[in-house]
């Protein structure tokens, strides 16, 4: 274990922020306050945070339609995210992107992405920029079991390997692409088996286990920073909510989610692990829980009080100059 107490606190805080952020959105969505599509990340927190704990603002990630967790894990401003999800002018993207497109390039967050398989080629580019400019940065692509079947993803894996790019491809296999089970749609059953075909190392980890993710990614990021090329990581996870808010999830067996929550919840697992090892106290963790609850409450309040964009905002930001 090489994580300091402060790092552990930060990891727990970020996972907790994601959980409360998503739980709260689930609730607020049913109240009809939030426009459009919302895809929640709750249940998968250990993956995003386990990866991003290795990254700085100079490192780039690409994300997916289920991107809130990646944003928070990469350090995006929570108030700005909430304002964005509510379509407010003060949102991270001025209310023009919404839940599926939250980005903050100053944090190395290259955007949630509404196109499954949209991110992997982009991350080749970010990694190429790091390599060409010699910044020592790495680029990490988050995608899922659905994205693992996209041609763009497979092309990107090949190109990253051919160009020996400082990239890490993280496949969060949460078991479902929309309503379709991954053990049916992924021909190789395990996504990690594809790593070998593209000439890169691969690892399959329990995505509920922050420490397992953290350890696997440490190796991949070190390899990338050392100029040894890309790696593939498959993190097996579960999402606690539907594909989108409003999804009745009739494709899931009764009790499936409840069982995961009872047996594998990443926050519970993390608390148990750090308290048993004496790394953090229950009081430390409870204090974080309290702070996060307040923070998310305030984020919702700020979002509701945010300014609505006006007609003047409609046509700006299309081009730098036109």
């Amino acid at each position: 274990m090489q994580l300091s107490k402060e790092q552990l606190k930060l990891a727990y805080q970020r996972m907790r922020q994601i959980r409360v952020f998503e739980d709260r959105l689930h609730l607020e969505f049913t109240r009809g306050q939030i426009p459009g599509f919302v895809h929640l990340y709750a249940g998968q927190e250990a993956s995003a945070v386990g990866v991003c704990m290795h990254l700085t603002d100079q490192d780039t990630i690409s994300s997916t339609h289920r991107g809130h967790g990646h944003c928070i894990a990469k350090g995006c401003d929570i108030d700005g995210m909430m304002l964005e999800i509510y379509g407010r002018k003060e949102g991270l993207c001025g209310g023009k992107g919404g839940s599926m497109h939250i980005a903050d390039l100053s944090k190395g967050m290259l955007g949630a992405n509404g196109i499954v398989g949209g991110g992997p080629p982009l991350i080749c580019g970010a990694a190429l920029a790091a390599k060409t400019l010699g910044t020592g940065a790495v680029a990490v692509c988050f995608t899922g079991d659905g994205g693992s079947n996209q041609g763009t993803t497979l092309e990107a894996l090949n190109l990253a390997s051919v160009w020996k790019l400082p990239a890490v491809f993280v496949f969060e296999n949460n078991g479902y692409a929309e309503s379709t089970a991954s053990h049916w749609s992924v021909s190789s059953k395990q996504i990690v088996k594809r790593a070998d075909a593209f000439g890169m190392p691969g690892a399959r980890v329990d995505g509920h286990d922050f420490f397992a993710v953290w350890e696997a990614v440490r190796e991949a990021v070190e390899r990338a920073r050392a100029g040894e090329g890309p790696s593939l990581i498959e993190a097996t996870t579960n999402r606690y909510y539907g594909h989108f808010e409003g999804d009745a999830q009739t494709y899931r067996a009764p009790g499936e989610v409840e069982k995961v929550k009872a047996e594998k919840d990443c926050l519970v697992h993390f608390r148990k692990r750090v308290t048993e090892a004496g790394l953090l106290s229950t009081a430390d963790l409870d204090a974080i829980d309290g702070e996060v609850a307040t923070q998310i409450d305030q984020a919702i309040e700020k979002a509701l009080a945010g300014t609505l964009p006006t007609v003047a905002d409609l046509t700006t930001d299309v081009y730098v100059r036109y």
Partner: peptide, 11 residues
């Protein structure tokens, strides 16, 4: 896509 991604990162 790599060209696009690289363009966002300073190339």
């Amino acid at each position: 896509g790599a060209a696009v991604g690289a363009a966002t990162q300073g190339l």
